[in-house]
Design a protein around this nucleic acid. Structure first.
Length: 208
DNA sequence: AAAAAGTTCAACCGCGCGACC
DNA sequence: AGGTCGCGCGGTTGAACTTTT
């Protein structure tokens, strides 16, 4: 509940983006001692972070099995189905998408799918209130965003969201948390860029 | 080239629940 | 029974980045 432990007033507690050093400390510590009991873990590891923050960082970013970027059309479909079934039970939905985190799915839903739903609703309203708009709608839908808004049953979404395919920013570590773009496959290692694979190989070198 | 607007996502916050003492 | 602690969840925010004007 974080009644006290998460004392955000404490000047000793760091907030904001994690540094590469902090990530390495956390990875190393968990590799040696395992995860859990996050508050004491944060202290023992020497991190000036709340246990909560450490847990979040580990679960959403550092875990070796976390898949990043490029939600596939299949995954998108699954998210749609499960959300229709369970609503905003993101962690529950995430359990059915191996390697995906609830946070990632939640963000994906809010930024991509929900947007399409709103657009579709808006278009639906326009069509129903002004029948003459239907023809105009059809011509407008030649652009890809609109053309993919009529596919899902309950609402609409675009299984081949071009933005998803091509835009994949990844925060990578080149010393100062610079954000870089690596093309369509952001999880792959790349020269001059700290990917998670790089971090983990570093951890393996340092570890034990 | 620069400013404004829009988009994405990592991280934070508050809350509820269960376990333990 | 009631207080404390740890965990997990869902909602929200703000910085970083891209796109548009």
């Amino acid at each position: 509940m974080d009644k006290k432990p998460c004392n955000s007033q404490d000047p000793e507690v760091r907030k904001g983006p994690w540094t590469m050093e902090e990530d390495l400390i956390l990875i190393n510590y968990i590799a040696n001692h395992g995860e859990g009991v996050w508050n004491s873990l944060a202290k023992s590891a020497g991190l000036k972070r709340t246990g909560k923050s450490c847990r979040l960082r580990w679960l959403n970013y550092l875990r070796p099995d976390v898949r990043r970027g490029n939600i596939t059309p299949e995954e998108q479909l699954l998210i749609m189905e499960l959300h229709a079934k369970w609503g905003n039970r993101w962690s529950k939905i995430a359990k059915h998408l191996p390697g995906r985190t609830d946070n990632e799915i939640k963000n994906y839903w809010r930024t991509r799918i929900q947007k399409h739903i709103k657009q579709a609703d808006h278009q639906q309203q326009q069509i129903s209130s002004f029948p003459g708009a239907a023809a105009a709608q059809n011509s407008e839908q030649s652009n890809d965003q609109a053309s993919c808004t009529n596919q899902a049953s309950t609402s609409s979404y675009c299984p081949t969201d071009h933005a998803v395919e091509s835009y994949s920013p990844t925060t990578s570590f080149n010393g100062n948390m610079e954000t870089t773009f690596q093309g369509p496959f952001p999880t792959e290692s790349h020269d001059n860029i700290w990917s998670m694979e790089d971090l983990w190989s570093l951890q393996l070198l340092n570890g034990d």
